[in-house]
Amino acid sequence: MKLNNIGKIVAGIVIFIVLATFFFWYGTGKSSSLPQPSLDTPAIAQMKEKRCVEDKAFMSINHMKLLHNWRDSAVREGNRNYTAKNGNVYKMSLSGTCLECHSNKEQFCDRCHTYVAAKPACFSCHSIPAEVKK
């Protein structure tokens, strides 16, 4: 049997395979080790109990919602006191509370954010501590 346009169909199937396996051949040069956010800052080194505002499991997946709530509470309601689940009270402040310990944005925030391509808008208003010092 005479087959129709073997060149075109093979080209089409090759294009399909290339597109469908895009992620296999694109950008796989780098190792896929998990990013390690660094806790190596002077403020954290001085802490007796190395604990964030809430526990790590909560913070790692909910920090953005927490910060969002802090923003609304501080900016819109004027309430700057956050009572954590364990009863500790913290001042709701990105620069004053979060960045006081995590003064290493590049080694802490950015590592994971870059990894999953999250682009938080925090620093379009807030200044980055290291940049101010420079």
């Binding site: 992620f23 796989t28 780098k30 896929s32 990894y115």
Partner: peptide
């Protein structure tokens, strides 16, 4: 969803 498939993210 390719951001989960490609490292570094293009």
């Amino acid at each position: 969803h390719l951001r989960f498939f490609i490292e570094p993210v293009a």
